[in-house]
Simulated scan of single mutants.
Amino acid sequence: MSAPLRLVIFDVDGTLVDSQGDIVAAMARAFAAVDLAPPPRDEVLGIVGLSLDVAMPTLRPDLSAAAHARMAQAYKDAYMQLRADAGVVQSSPLYPGAMQTLQALYALPEVLLGVATGKSRRGLDKLIEGHGLEGYFVTQQVADFHPSKPHPSMILQAMADTGVTPSETVMIGDTSYDMEMAAAAGVQGIGVSWGYHPRERLGQASRIVEDYADLRAALDQIWSVSA
């Protein structure tokens, strides 16, 4: 009897790639656009995963919608420039073991790979191209077409795209928003310890892994229960 079709959805920033340097630098320019000093680094990393239209009001709820829009545009412009200057591989390097894990999962005929990210379509396309990941992700959910995490829209659409059931779907991410999104969509969430939110914020994760080498075993445990 063949294994059921399974879907593994990855967050991007803080899960697949470490882009914190560009994120912090771009946020500094976003705040400069409205003549303000940027918040501390940990506060900036704390909103990674949110769409920009939610992230800016989260950081500065006292500012106007027009100011938030200027900040979001300045952030986008700065991030694009930083990435162009350094190149994708340097500005957003893959975490150790990420590529090997993607390759191993991609090789499994019953496993489909997806992405659910607060990045824009353009940003995700550049990252996939820069790392040679074309063809790996059969479903790609981005901020352009969905409410911000932790709304479950991205995961629900990924499951609709692939025809995979919630019991066979797993969301992998580094933030509370990823784990809350997974719970809201009725799927299992695996938290990763190497990202931008501390472990104590990953309370809704069904499991937390310390290294990419541990991920396959965590997936196998989840799938053995659902089988």
Rank of each mutant, 00 (worst) to 15 (best):
R207I: 08
L156G: 00
A143L: 06
I172T: 00
G130A: 10
S167V: 15
Y212N: 01
E134T: 15
V192E: 00
A183R: 15
Y177K: 03
S193N: 12
Y196E: 01
S120F: 08
R199Y: 07
G135V: 07
H151P: 03
Q140I: 14
A182Y: 02
E129Q: 13
M171Q: 08
A183C: 11
L113C: 07
D211L: 10
G203Y: 10
G132F: 08
A184Y: 02
D214R: 11
V115A: 05
F145Q: 14
Y136R: 04
G130P: 04
S120I: 08
Q140M: 14
M159K: 02
T117K: 03
R199E: 13
D214I: 09
L127V: 09
M154G: 03
H151Q: 13
S193L: 15
G118H: 02
G135M: 10
H197M: 07
R207K: 14
S206R: 15
M179E: 04
R199P: 00
L127P: 01
A158C: 10
A182D: 01
L156Q: 13
G173P: 04
S153H: 14
D174G: 04
S206V: 14
A185D: 02
D144G: 07
L156H: 10
G132H: 11
E200G: 07
A183M: 10
D125N: 13
L113Y: 04
Q157C: 07
M171F: 09
S176N: 15
R207S: 14
E180Y: 00
S176K: 12
I190K: 01
G191E: 04
G173M: 06
P166N: 09
I128F: 09
D161K: 06
G203I: 11
V170C: 07
A184T: 06
T165A: 14
K119A: 05
Q157T: 13
V164D: 02
D125W: 03
D144F: 10
